[in-house]
Design a protein around this nucleic acid. Structure first.
Length: 562
RNA sequence: UGGGGCGUAGCCAAGCGGUUAAGGCACCGGGUUUUGAUCCCGGCAUUCGGAGGUUCGAUCCCUCCCGCCCCAGCCA
């Protein structure tokens, strides 16, 4: 009754409200959900939403979430996908314990249920071709016509179905159909096919079967067999729910899970369908399913996204029934938030410009202490070598710079992070090209550590690496894969027309501080003032480091320049 | 023109008959800062797709209208 306390908890989404209610009323003491991917591709950020929902509910309500592969179409499915899917779900931080299942585990039971349907005169073997069936189905506005095979006897149906199972018929010649209502306004109820003949080897059952059950028939029964309480799926299955319920009611299964639909995830500046992702891979627009520009789980992992950041993102966007487009910035914000607290800071110079500190002794090398995280002393510190020649970021020098440019120009003073104040004295240029080769600066020995005893201030602090000790490396700068918010909104333009030609920029001569020399692949750090970077898990090798930019830091200066 | 859904800010999203209509992203100000980062503080819907109705009172209930999405695979 109190309304004085501000509620900081995230409100429950409509599905969690249902689960809560079911728990309260005792309908289901604990929820049982399932994550049911089809093993025909890699998991992407959209699946992450479903994973976080299903496993999240199981965790929050002390329930269980089964991992179940929906492997009813052997012509598209492979065990390689089964493996990657499991890795991705585990990596996201969820576990299914012993509850790993396959729809194909139930083929025998499903077959028995089909026999029962026939006995109850609720299913029949149909000899219509797929074209004929389409014609008989009717249209959105006109009812369909009943199949001439609809009234076969139970015995004949049993015999025919047995023959289908035995492989006596050709693919496409016969199907088993549910006998529902050809006049239903819901096309899914117009005697849908529940079994088809496919003489294809299945990745788990081999050549044992040549008939395979359809999704609508399989999914509800699999849910019932596993005693799922809440079967969560995306909006496009809403029209299938009557069929889901029909199968379970007609067969009188001991439990009847409730199917609840929610909106799938759409993100701006990307495409989400497996088909399109597959196309990008196959046509070589990206290097593979785990290309860091792909919003697959494996791509995000390689890009440097943490599992926590993806979970946070999923929590943030919520669950609803409204078709929505989440701005890519929300995802980027989620990684920045997470990495900001977890990533150690280091110095990395993307595009190096040499600086000679002319008044610094030739052979002197100092060790300068640098904090690993400015807000978190627990993360410790490290020592940075410093000497007469260093490299700074090329973009940190600008001739005739405007007043608001807080970096280097001739005559201007800046702070080298953790080190000294330096003042630019002169610029050395290539005589013919005019290219800036190096800067000559002087330092103030009194400013060791970055503070001037006389109290004078500098506006800018820039990052640097020591020339003799820096480690050369490759840095890959990623940007959004597409240039437009919604690459596939226009059906007349191929989505690939909108690919961003600058989605990957590789810099081969970047320099990082020596502490990174032996860092492991997968290590995530912040290059101060630049962004978050992660050592590539595929191409980085000792002595030949490759960093992927996960996301840049927010840059109000860059924004101001626009 | 059948059926099933959905409409709260630029983008998400709470709200469940009486609220100053949460929160996040984005954006705009200001402060702190040895990252132009982070952090902090402030601004950002007199109005909930539209029009009627019920009610003392409607984002919430009812009616009609408008807009968008899904369904005619032997895919999932």
């Amino acid at each position: 009754m109190s309304n004085s306390e501000p509620n900081t908890e995230k409100p429950l989404d409509f599905i969690r409200q249902i689960v809560t209610e079911d728990q309260k009323t005792g309908k289901h003491a604990t929820p049982v959900t399932r994550f049911p991917p089809e093993p025909n591709g890699f998991l992407h950020i959209g699946h992450a939403k479903s994973i976080c929902l299903n496993f999240g509910i199981a965790n929050e309500f002390n329930g269980r979430c089964n991992m179940r592969f929906d492997d009813t179409n052997p012509s598209k499915e492979e065990s390689a996908y089964v493996k990657s899917i499991q890795e991705d779900v585990k990596w996201l931080g969820f576990s299914w314990g012993d509850n790993l299942f396959y729809a194909s585990d139930y083929f025998e039971k499903l077959y028995e249920f089909a026999l029962e349907l026939i006995r109850r005169e609720k299913a029949f073997v149909c000899d219509l071709s797929s074209e004929e069936m389409r014609a008989y189905r009717g249209t959105l506005t006109e009812p369909g016509k009943e199949s001439p095979y609809r009234n076969r006897s139970v015995e004949e149906n049993l015999e025919l179905f047995q023959a289908m199972k035995n492989g006596d018929f050709e693919e496409g010649s016969h199907v088993l159909r549910a006998k529902i209502d050809m006049a239903s306004p819901n096309l899914n109820m117009r005697d849908p096919v529940i079994y088809r003949i496919m003489k294809v080897v299945h990745h788990r059952t081999g050549d044992k079967w040549c008939i395979y059950p359809m999704y609508d028939y399989t999914h509800c029964l699999s849910d019932a067999i596993e005693e799922i309480t809440h079967s969560l799926c995306t909006l496009e299955f809403e029209n299938h729910r009557p069929l889901y319920d029909w199968v379970l009611d007609t067969l009188e299964t001991p439990v009847h899970p409730r199917q609840i639909e929610f909106a799938r995830l759409n993100l701006t500046y990307t495409v989400m369908s497996k088909r399109k992702l597959m196309q990008l891979v196959q046509e070589g627009h990206v290097s593979g399913w785990n290309d860091p520009r792909m919003l697959t789980i494996s791509g995000l992992r390689r890009r440097g996204y943490s599992p926590a950041s993806i979970r946070d993102f999923c929590k943030e966007i919520g669950i609803g029934k409204k078709e929505s487009w989440i701005d890519m910035g929300v995802l980027e914000n989620a990684v920045r938030n997470d990495l900001n607290t977890t990533a150690p800071r280091v110095m990395g110079v993307l595009d190096p410009l040499k600086v000679v500190i002319t008044n610094y002794p030739e052979d002197k090398i100092e060790e300068i202490e640098a904090r690993n995280h400015p807000q978190n002393p627990d993360m410790g510190s490290r020592m940075l070598p410093f000497s007469r020649e260093i490299f700074i970021e090329r973009t940190d020098f600008l001739e005739n710079a405007p007043k608001k440019f807080f970096r280097l120009d001739i005559g201007r003073e800046v702070r080298l992070r953790y080190a000294y104040f330096i003042t630019c004295v002169s610029v050395v240029k290539d005589e013919t090209s005019g290219e800036i080769l190096e800067l000559h600066c002087t330092y103030d020995p009194e400013t060791y550590g970055g503070n001037a005893p006389d109290g004078r201030k500098v506006k800018g602090t820039i990052h640097w690496v020591d020339a003799r000790h820096a480690v050369k490396c490759e840095v890959r700068l990623y940007d959004r894969l597409f240039e437009v918010e919604n690459p596939d909104v226009d059906k007349d333009v191929d989505f690939k027309e909108h690919l961003n030609p600058d989605s990957l920029t590789s810099i081969k001569n970047s320099l990082v501080e020596p502490s990174l020399a032996d860092a492991e692949p997968g290590t995530c750090v912040q290059f101060e003032r630049q962004g978050y970077f992660c050592i590539d898990s595929m191409n980085s090798k000792p002595g030949n480091l490759v960093f992927n930019r996960t996301v840049s830091l927010r840059d109000s200066w860059a924004k101001r320049k626009k």
